[in-house]
Write a protein that binds this DNA or RNA. Structure first.
Length: 491
RNA sequence: GGUCUCGUAGUAUAACGGUUAGUACAACGGGUUUUCAUCCCGUCAACGCGGGUUCGACUCCCGCCGAGAUCACCA
């Protein structure tokens, strides 16, 4: 059986955003599922749009998502080079074959002239096709054209207009008429190939069996098929992936709509597991009601024929839901140490020099409140530094505003006196003490506990009170209670 | 304009001729005798329209409408 080989072939023009990362994920899953190979190829033939550092950005993104490639930059491989600019001689060689068979011709028609053709046809309301304006060189003999073609002169394909039929693994049976076949540019003025030409050569030479790419390439398919034919190459399998839609409107999600880069979500504290899970399931499902998939589960469950053929809207709210699920899943299944290892860089600055054990304890009581890891910044500060006392948070609290200041002060005094005598600062014992205090206070749980909670944290919310007090430790709790009481006393 | 694709609740989706059209997110309400969250329970909410075919259509066919893609020496 032929080895399954898939590829992701981005051009280094910037970051990978949410809208195009699925064309990396699906090929990856297909390769892994079939013990095949996943190739990364950098399509850098557009020197004008080339962005320094973009290749590294792409590599970073794939690595973060866990989409390791078997051949490509860094790792190398037998079918390299994996940068198109380093494969120029391959394209030239194939281009010459096409000239030899009379299927390509040099064309130095100036672009102004081409624009004119286009305008003329538009004015006449006939579809613009370059093959209706072929220059004399299109009729030269192969020998002649081989002779006159030199770097600096664009090379065009000589189309053979006819019907094409093919199967798209996602969209189904396809067919088009001759009106879409045209003389496309193969080699540009700068001597580099166009995408249209280069990707076909590369995929063939790299043994790619499945090409997955956005549906925008669907309308170019007849020209690609013509090229496969003219080059004598076997067609691979084609997968047209529907677009991911922007949050508003019906357009595909692109950088202009503010499509965030994948790594931006990483920096916001989204876990790669959640991102991969969400993106894979956006436009694909296995027919069951399962929602949470690990990478291995995706590899097992994935199937091409269940890829959705309509566009799917990217929903930021849902990815945060997935992220919450994954935060809890990792903590519960792999332990708090594993989750902790993901949190570097997400703690508030004041926590920087705090001991890891302490941060792990904080994490262990707060993780089920996190939607993203960056929530740690806003949610845990009071564990590391005394909060700013803001009496209004107590006085205006919905549970506390009916209590008088005197009552509040008395309750704090009661608490301080009792806790002063407590030496067993475990969660269990604190829970017991707090229950006793609650009984003594004569208040409703929401009233008494809210007071203590706010008095030590001055945060809008916090973990369960006994846990918060236990992790905070005896000294911090008592000193903060005292400070808060003093503040209330002095009004 | 030519060519092509798509069309189930606000969103993502299930159904592959027969179900009270299922699930998840969101929204709303409630519970878990402490906040926020988790977790649990409940409510709201959909087959674009019109014709066929059929005993029966979300499902098959046709037309329409709507949305999108593409028509580069960009990928």
């Amino acid at each position: 059986m032929k080895e399954i080989r898939t590829r992701f072939a981005p051009s280094p023009t910037g970051y990978i955003h949410i809208g195009n990362v699925r064309s990396a994920i699906y090929p990856y899953l297909i390769a892994r599922q079939n013990d095949g190979k996943f190739i990364l190829r950098i399509e850098d033939t557009d020197r004008a749009r080339y962005v320094e550092g973009a290749t590294e950005l792409i590599e970073d993104t794939l690595k973060w998502l866990g989409l390791e490639w078997d051949e490509g930059p860094i790792v190398g491989g037998e079918n390299g080079p994996y940068f198109q600019t380093e494969r120029k001689d391959h394209y030239i060689a194939w281009a010459k074959k096409l000239i030899e068979t009379g299927r390509a011709y040099p064309d130095d028609t100036p672009s102004e002239k081409i624009d004119e053709y286009r305008k003329e046809d538009n004015a006449k309301k006939i579809p613009y096709l370059y093959r209706n304006h072929r220059p004399a060189s299109a009729e030269n003999s192969p020998e002649e054209n081989l002779e006159i073609w030199k770097e600096g002169t664009p090379l065009r394909f000589k189309a053979d207009p006819k019907n094409y039929e093919w199967k798209d693994e996602v969209m189904g049976e396809m067919h088009t008429g001759p009106e879409v076949c045209d003389d496309i540019i193969l080699i540009k003025k700068d001597g580099l190939p166009t995408y249209n030409f280069a990707h076909i050569i590369d995929d063939a030479e790299m043994g790619v069996t499945h090409i997955a790419r956005g549906v925008e390439y669907l309308s170019s398919m007849p020209n690609y098929l013509a090229l496969y034919e003219a080059l004598g190459l076997d067609r691979p399998l084609f997968l047209s992936l529907p677009h991911i839609l922007a949050p508003q409107g019906n357009k595909k999600l692109g950088k202009r709509d503010g499509a965030k880069s994948v790594t931006e979500y990483r920096d916001d504290g989204v876990l790669p597991e959640a991102m991969l899970n969400y993106l894979a399931c956006l436009g694909w499902n296995d027919g069951t009601e399962k929602e949470i998939y690990s990478k291995d589960e995706l590899i097992k469950a994935f199937s091409i024929d269940r890829i959705q053929n309509s566009g799917a809207r990217f929903d930021e709210v849902k990815i945060y839901w997935y992220n919450g699920q994954w935060i809890r899943k990792i903590a519960d299944e792999q332990g708090i140490d594993e989750l902790y290892s993901r949190t570097k860089g997400f703690w508030p600055e004041v926590a920087e020099n705090e001991p890891e054990d302490y941060k792990k304890k904080v994490l262990s009581i707060i993780y089920d409140r996190l939607k993203t890891l960056s929530d740690l910044k806003s949610m845990t500060e009071y564990f590391f530094v005394d909060p700013k006392i803001d009496a209004s948070m107590i006085l205006e609290n919905k549970f506390l505003k009916k209590l008088s200041e005197t009552e509040l002060i008395e309750l704090l005094t009661l608490t301080i006196e009792r806790l002063n005598d407590v030496s067993d600062w475990s969660e269990e014992n604190l829970q017991k003490e707090l229950n006793d205090l609650l009984a003594k206070s004569g208040k409703k749980p929401a009233e008494y506990f809210s007071l203590v909670r706010i008095a030590v944290s001055f945060a809008p919310f916090s973990p369960a009170l006994h846990q918060t007090l236990s992790v905070l430790g005896r000294d911090k709790v008592l000193s903060r209670l005292n400070m808060t009481r003093t503040a209330l006393v002095s009004g």
